[in-house]
Structure formats: C-alpha cells, structure tokens
Design a protein around this nucleic acid. Structure first.
Lengths: 188, 188, 188, 188
DNA sequence: GATGAATGAGAGTTCATTCAT
DNA sequence: GATGAATGAACTCTCATTCAT
C-alpha cells in the first residue's frame, strides 16, 4: 500500500474518531492529508469505501495489540486480564482523546443502517468477547464465562461512553478499577 | 406548546434516534411531520435548536418514567433496582428498536464538539447515576455506592451498544440478567 | 405550473436541442434560465427528470401543431399531407436552427440506454406514423399504407439528419419536395 | 500503426457507437482496451483526436465495403443498388446492434458544434450520395439523379433512426424493402 | 400562522489531462 | 514505450436557511 494511501487512512481515521463518519467531510480529509479531490478518488472509490478501510485498519491494530499482544501472549489469565484493562485505559490516556472508542462510536453510528460496517465492527467485538471468555474460563471456571466476558466488554464500552459524556477520563479509570476489583482482586 | 410543535419534536426524535443527528436531514423531518420549510422555521430557529429541544423532550420522559416512576416511588431499594432494569430492557423490547439508547447515541455523537448538547445529556446521565447511587446505599451500604452506580449504568449503556452492534436484543437481556444476579440475587 | 419552471424547461429544451442531453450541463441551464442550483432542484429532482419533462413539453407542442393542427383538421388528405410537409420544413426554417429534430436527436442519444426516454419519444413517433397512415389510406388506398407512412417519416427524419450534417437547409427542402412529388403530384 | 493502437480504436469505436461520444468516458475506453492512462496519451493527444481517428477508421471500412465493394464493383446498376441495400441491412442484423448508424449518430451529436467532425463525416455521406447518384443515372436516367440518391440515403438513415427508437430491426427491413420496391422492382 | 420559492455554500463524485519515474 | 500518481475544474446534487407573499 502506498505511503500516501496510508496517510489518508490515518488522517481520516482520526477525524472520524473525533467527529464521526457523517460529520467528517471529504474536504476535512483532503485538508488533513494534504491531497486534492482527484487523488482521493484515485485511492478510494468513495467515502464509504474509505470508511470500511478504516475499520480494517482498526482491525489490524486490534489484532496486533489486543489479540496477539494480550490474548495470545504467554502470560497467566490474571495477567492477560490485567493487561487488557491497562491497554483499554491507556489508549484513552495516551491519546488524551476524549473521543471515545473508535469503533464503538462507529458501531453506534453505522450498525443500524449499514450492514457491511456493522459486520466488520461486529467481527472485532465478537473476537474480543470470545477471547475474553477463554480468559474467564481460566479465571473462574466454565460457568457463564461468555456472559461474564460480555459484561466486562459492555462495562468498558459503557465506561468509555460515560467518560466521553463527562469529558473526564477518571470516570473510565474508576470503572476499569471496579472490573479489576471484581474479577482480579476478589480473594485478596 | 402547539400540537404541531409536539408532533415535529416526536417525529424528529424518532428519526434522530434511528439515523443520528447529522444524518437526519431537515427534509426527513418535514416529510415525517408533514410540514413545509416555513412552518419548521416558525417553530424552531435552527436544526440545532430542535436537537436541543429533543434532549429536553427526553429529559421529560426521563423524569416521568425513571426519576418519578422508579426512583421517587415508595418501593424498596431492591424493587426500585428491579424496576429500573425492567424499564431499561422494556424500552428496547417494546419499540422493537435496535437503534440503541436515544441519548446514549447523542452523547457519543455530540459530546465532544457541542458543549450545550453534552451538558444537557450529561444532566440526564448524572441524575440517573446519582439516584442509582442512593439505591445502592440502601442495597449494600455507603461503600463505593457511586462507583457501583456508575458501573451499572456503564454496563447498561455498554450492553445497549453491544445489542445494537449485534442487532440482537437477547445480548442486552443477558447483560441485564447479570446485573440482577450481581446486585439483587446475591444472597439467594 | 409556475412561470419559472416553464422558463427553465424552454431554456433547457433549446440547449438540449442544440448540444444534446449529455453535453448540456446543469450550469448551462442555470445560466440560460437565470437561476441558482437550489432553485433548479426545487423544480426538478434531477437532470434526467428535466429531460423527461422536456419530452413531454415536445409532446404537447406535437399534439397541438401536428396532431390537432394537421391530422385532426377538416382538410382533405392531400391538404393534410401538404400541411404536414410544410410544418416539417417550416420548423427548421423559422428557427433557423440547423440543430435537427429535437426528439429525433434525443431518440438517437437516449433510445438504447434509457428505456423511459425511448418509450416517451417512441410514443410521439408512433402517433405521427399512425396518423399519417390514415392519410395514406385516403390518398392511395389501404395497400401498404403503414409502410408508406413509415417511409415518409423516415425520409423526413433522414432528411433532417442530412441537413444537419451538411448544415444546409436546402437539403431538407429538396427531400421534402421529392416526397411531395411522389405522393401528391403523382398524376399531375 | 501498432496493434495496441488499433485495439484502442476499435474498442472505443464500439463504445462510442453504443453510448455516444460525450457519454463514452476515457475510463470506459481504457477498461475496454485494457490500458492505463499513460498509454492512452501515448497514442492519442486527446479524446477528441481519438474521436476523429475513429471517423477515419469508419472511412476506411466505408471505402472498402461500400465504395470499393459495391460502387466500384463490376456489377450492373441494379445489382449495385441491391448490394448496397443488403449491406445496409446486414450491418445491423449481423452485429445485432440496435445502436444505429455509427457515423449517423456522430453526425447528429457533433455536426453543429465541431466543424472538423462534421466535415469528416460529411465527406463519407457525400461520397455515398454521389456514388449512388451515378447508379441512379444508370437506373433511371439523368433526371433528378442526385435528388433520388439523397432521398434513398435519407430513407436509410431515417429508417435506422426509427429502428433504433423502436428497438426493432424489422422496421428497418421494411423500409429498405420499400426502397427496393420503388427503385428496383418497378416494372415487374 | 403558513407556504413554498429562492439562495448559495458546499457535499460527494467524475473526468480529461499532466507529470514524474 | 509504459505506468499510475497527481491535478483541479467541473459535474450533479444536497442542505440549512432566508425571504416574499
């Protein structure tokens, strides 16, 4: 993939993360990645195609950081869970972004009226939940492992939503802390 | 408030709930509420003002159904919690809408770049959390009541997000069931 | 129909007559009828809809001048034929337009890839041929009346094509004269 | 001329025949002849130059099939006329194309606003008419030979126009049959 | 209080053409 | 001789908003 295409994707990803898909205009993207109209359409056939490519771009990051970096690591279940929680918070701390979850936002904006977006995003979320369910099995046995995984993911995504609405990252930190308390520090 | 204005608000609220604020066009609203351009601008000075009015409209519903109907009722803390959970699920069951949470969606779409929207929505969420914190105090003592309230709200909002992305209401039902298990059926 | 809409139609009809449908740009139409983009789309939902409306506009003229004015007149068959030929030449003489036949041009441009255009135009041509076939029956009996009607229409449309390519109206006049000779002055 | 250039010309000729000059985009041509932007501009300096080249390409075919193949043959005038009529119908039968006459279409689309196109096409048509006039002289004497030639060409081109608008080749066949009847089977 | 015509900036997209490699 | 990235004007169309009646 050409350098320029990558540049467009990452500039657009950031814009869409911040403003949403619909509110991000092609002109914003062109300005942010310093290209003209023609060049944009040289690389992408439409704004929607760019949007879908961005989801793929998140999917790669996701796979690298979460699936490979956390779940496929050789750490213990406890440590995996801990790393996942840290990773979730750190993303928002490091970017100082109070924009929320990049694909959580897209999930809400696109799921109902664009099936292709929905499925791509759902694939990410479903992977997350399933890998977490495996960790749950190690942590607390087979019983309701999937349900607990869903609860944790919901809690994180909901926590990010609250953080965004309060524009205060400590809200998310607190909620993540509660997950830790509930699933990791139980017996202590 | 004139009947027509109310009609516009409720038609627009539904559209925005489904498609989002940005993706809902004035023309959609005019068509859905059967009015012309002139009449719209007679009642509202701008699309944004309508949007803000819609948040107020949700605030009324909110106050009626959740604050008065649940938290200010004379039921026990357990029953209040139970009713709140039922109310949360029922909204999505009854409307068969897989559109998600009307103001949760707006929170994500608007919080970062429109402070007035953010504050209005935050007011609703904050009320919810604070009233729930009171219930928590009754249920399980002062300790971390606010944190637990936030966790529950996050879990519900996150559950709705997952439900929307899976386009499957059972996801939300399961997550709500887990909250019930965690906070209500503990000792049983 | 509003005056403005009529103005747009007639300005656009002339442009499309001269330059063709595809080569006539919205900006040409806007300039010629002195309107802005918005106003155009207030009256028409698309360029194509305008195009179809223009065919209807020709159909009206057609009905008025040819069907009512010539074929439904109380003249003899000879006189009807004569009037039709005169009308055909006069259109091109009076407008000094060497643009050809307004809907003959469209027939060629649109027939193959836009069925709605094709059918609308075909309706005009078919009416012409059928009314002329009736005149032929009066003139020279039932035998091959339809075939002769088609031949005459083909000769006229083909004559207009030659006229346009030679950019010389005398070509058309000559061909019309030959039709007259063939069908009207036979016995003389 | 390189093989590739010939390929581009024939692919573009077919596209323009079907869709028209304006509606045929460079991208269509590039796709149909499997070349890139650079290669196109290596062989042609512009779309217009390609268009003019295509008329030349038709002129060659024209010369080969009609002028040499029919008019310069050693057949009798009757047989030449007959062969010309057969050739005219066969082109549309064999290609099953209801796209009409390749340069008749161009004549209508281009004659009025591109003098170079007009003259090139006019050259073809004029040759046709003049050669046919010679045949007419043999067939029916000097009297109005040119006029009759024009009428026949007009009838054929008009017949093709009707055929295209009816999307029915039998219309053309019928009209050609009438020419035969009029000029060849007269005395029989 | 209501209508819908008018506005015009800007949306996403197309396209012939140029240019660096 | 060939590639495809880059250009930018122009294209059809959208939209929130204003204005005259």
């Amino acid at each position: 993939m050409s350098e320029k295409k990558r540049e467009i994707i990452s500039a657009a990803a950031e814009l869409i993360h911040t403003k949403g898909y619909e509110a991000t205009k092609l002109s914003d993207i062109m300005q942010a990645s310093d290209i003209g109209k023609g060049q944009f359409y040289h690389y992408f056939s439409s704004k929607r195609e760019l949007g879908l490519t961005i989801v793929d771009y998140y999917a790669e990051m996701w796979d690298r950081e979460l699936i490979q970096g956390v779940f496929h690591s050789s750490f213990s279940a406890e440590k995996k869970m801990e790393n996942m929680l840290e990773w979730a918070v750190n993303y928002h701390v490091s970017t100082q972004a109070l924009s929320g979850c990049p694909f959580g936002n897209l999930a809400i904006e696109m799921s109902e009226h664009d099936e292709e977006f929905r499925l791509k995003i759902n694939n990410l979320i479903d992977q997350w939940i399933n890998h977490l369910a495996d960790v749950m099995k190690d942590l607390r046995g087979e019983d309701q492992a999937l349900q607990h995984a869903r609860v944790v993911v919901a809690q994180i995504e909901g926590g990010i939503l609250l953080m965004k609405n309060y524009q205060d990252i400590s809200i998310l930190k607190d909620i993540i802390a509660m997950i830790r308390l509930n699933y990791l520090d139980k017996g202590e």
